[in-house]
Computed example of a mutant assay.
Amino acid sequence: MKLLIIYTYPNHKSLNYSFLQSVIKGSNENPYIEELQVLDLYEENFNPLLVFNEEKRRRDMHIDPSIKKYQNQLKWADKVVFIYPIWWGRPPAMLMGYIDQLFASNFAYRDKKGLFPEGLLKGKSVVCVSTMKGPTHYPFLWLNNAHKVLMKRALFNFVGIKKVKFFEFGNMESPRGNHKKKLEKIYQYFKEIKR
């Protein structure tokens, strides 16, 4: 299995960075994971802004040379791991900008007759590791599960990715947030995962 980790947090002394290290450590100890790549969007200085004009059109995003490297990473990966905070009930703008550019028509999906497109990223799987200040069940109870609906139904299923696993960790700014237990859970998951 080839694993691509997309890390979206600007601070390398953060709890999110500790989750990144737990994923890497567990993956390095997993005999089923043969290769691993990490894309740190902030360290990469990824530009999340969409620019469209007379020379650069939305329908041509799939052939934009500025994102070819990232397209190749997604093609290469069997499993994609996203690590990010949940801010205002959704992933940060940096990650959404990456999604806007990479999950484009004729790369991630292709329009066809009927209601739904053809997903071009079939066979891949996704794990989302997210953190938030509020309680773990806040998105479910107060936001009608908006985060998971956005990521799973509106994005991953749309492009053909059916296997999606979520780890939503709440109370992350609390000293009683069980940080070590949650980090260990992520480490063990990636150490043992087979597909």
Rank of each mutant, 00 (worst) to 15 (best):
F167V: 09
F169H: 08
V149N: 09
W142K: 13
A154H: 14
G160Y: 07
P92R: 04
N11D: 08
E118H: 06
S18T: 03
K79H: 13
V81L: 04
V159T: 10
L49S: 14
F166Q: 01
K133L: 07
R58A: 12
I99L: 14
L115T: 12
L102W: 05
E34T: 14
M96P: 01
L102S: 14
L150H: 15
G119F: 10
F158K: 05
M151D: 11
L41Y: 14
G177C: 11
G26Y: 12
L155H: 11
N145I: 00
L41F: 12
L183D: 08
L141S: 12
L20P: 00
Y70Q: 10
R153F: 11
V149R: 13
I33F: 06
N72P: 06
G134V: 05
L183V: 08
L141T: 12
A93G: 07
F107C: 04
E29P: 14
N45T: 09
H179L: 02
N178F: 03
N28K: 15
P10W: 00
I67P: 03
V164R: 11
P92M: 00
K124V: 03
S174E: 01
L3T: 04
F52W: 10
F82T: 08
I86G: 02
L74K: 09
P65I: 10
L141K: 08
G114P: 09
Y187H: 13
Y32E: 13
Y187E: 00
K191S: 08
G97R: 04
G26E: 14
P139I: 00
G170F: 00
E192F: 15
K25W: 00
E54Y: 07
M151T: 11
S105P: 07
N45W: 01
P117S: 05
R176T: 14
V129G: 00
E34F: 03
S66Q: 10
M61Q: 06
R59A: 12
K25Q: 11
P92L: 00
P31Q: 10
A77D: 08
E34V: 07
Y109G: 02
P31K: 04
N171F: 07
Y9G: 03
G177V: 12
D111S: 14
K75I: 14
K124E: 04
Q71N: 15
C128D: 12
E44H: 13
K124N: 02
Y189R: 08
I63R: 06
S130N: 13
I6L: 06
Q71T: 03
K2I: 07
K69H: 15
V38G: 08
K148A: 08
K56S: 13
V81G: 09
K69Y: 15
F166M: 02
S125M: 05
W76S: 10
D100P: 09
T8G: 01
R195G: 15
L120P: 00
F107K: 11
F156R: 01
A77Y: 06
E184A: 15
A146I: 03
F156V: 08
A104F: 06
V51F: 13
Y70A: 10
I186E: 08
T131I: 00
Y42N: 11
L155M: 10
Q101E: 03
V81K: 07
Y70F: 12
I5C: 07
F103N: 03
Y98K: 05
P175M: 12
Q71G: 06
